[in-house]
Every structure is written in structure tokens, then in C-alpha cells.
Write a protein that binds this DNA or RNA. Structure first.
Lengths: 69, 69
DNA sequence: GCTTGACGTCAAGCGTCCTTTACTATACCA
DNA sequence: TGGTATAGTAAAGGACGCTTGACGTCAAGC
């Protein structure tokens, strides 16, 4: 699972801290998602896409390894 | 968080069990998501949307209470 | 009546998501 | 030099996503 959060965030001029506030999560959560440490929950992902005025699929990108069992 | 999984699943003619197999998760997981017990993870939600040939936002619907702190 | 398919409940266990707190590094600017 | 903003790491703890296994219900068809 890859994501374009950094690009979108920069495009909108938010620091990690401001963005975290906007979303109502901790800065650590933003860092972890951006660094690919883990995936956001579905509601969080949807709010992120909403803020960036796009849809989930444009911000988060599925990879072959995601859920191939 | 609401979702239209039952409608989509019926539309595609899948039983819960078949659908679970397709996704590579347990039937219990399908039941829990359909019943609103919890939200799927982001990758699972994306695969669900992909199977239904639509995007995440059409299957899962954010509500005010999601992530309002 | 019995079986089969589809749907449902409950519970224990494990890994992931998210939090808080504390600390480090770099760059910029007074 | 010292202060501020931004981004990063680490670790402990709680809540949630998902699993497995066992069991219950209801309708359809033999």
C-alpha cells in the first residue's frame, strides 16, 4: 500500500502538525502513515481524501501484496 | 459509517461465504462489516470496491459521528 | 423428518491502528 | 548564540480488525 499523502499535504500547504489537527489525530499518526508504517483506518482515509477534494483511490494505492493470501 | 455491501453483494449474486473467499477473509468478517460491527481495514475496503467495480466512497459512507472528536 | 444452504451469535486470541510522552535533528532567522 | 518550526524516532498502552471454532435458526427440497 502506497500513498501520496506528502504530495497532497504539501500541495495544500499543511505542516504535519496542522494536518493532524485538521484530521483530529496525533502528529505521530500522520508521520506513521506517510512513512508507510501502517495504513489509516477506513474513516480516516476517507476524511483525508475529502480534505484533498478527491477520492480514496487517488491518495492510497493498492499493491499486489495487499491482501494476497 | 454506513455501507451498501449487502446490496452490492446481492447484485453480484454472491453468498457471504463466496464473497469472503473472493476477498480472502473469513465469513465472520463479512458478517461483521455488513452488520456494522466494525469498519474494514483500508486495503480490504479498496478490494471490496474493486470487486464491485466502483470506488470506496460508493460502498462506504462517512457519517458525522465518524472521527468527530 | 432430515439435510443442505444461507445467515446469524458468541468468545478467545493476535496483530494493527492510534494515542501520549519524550527526545533528536535540521534549517532558518533574530 | 539562541529560539522557533518542521520532521523524525522510540516505546508503552488501549481499542479495533480479523481469525478460528462451535453452535443456533430458518426456509427449501428430498
Amino acid at each position: 500500500m502506497k500513498n501520496n499523502m506528502v504530495e497532497y499535504r504539501r500541495k495544500f500547504g499543511y505542516s504535519q502538525e496542522k494536518f493532524a489537527e485538521l484530521l483530529g489525530v496525533s502528529r505521530q499518526t500522520i508521520i506513521s502513515i506517510e512513512k508507510g508504517k501502517y495504513n489509516p483506518s477506513l474513516p480516516l482515509a476517507m476524511i483525508i481524501a475529502e480534505i484533498f477534494q478527491t477520492n480514496v483511490e487517488n491518495v492510497f494505492i493498492l499493491e499486489e501484496t495487499d491482501y494476497k493470501k
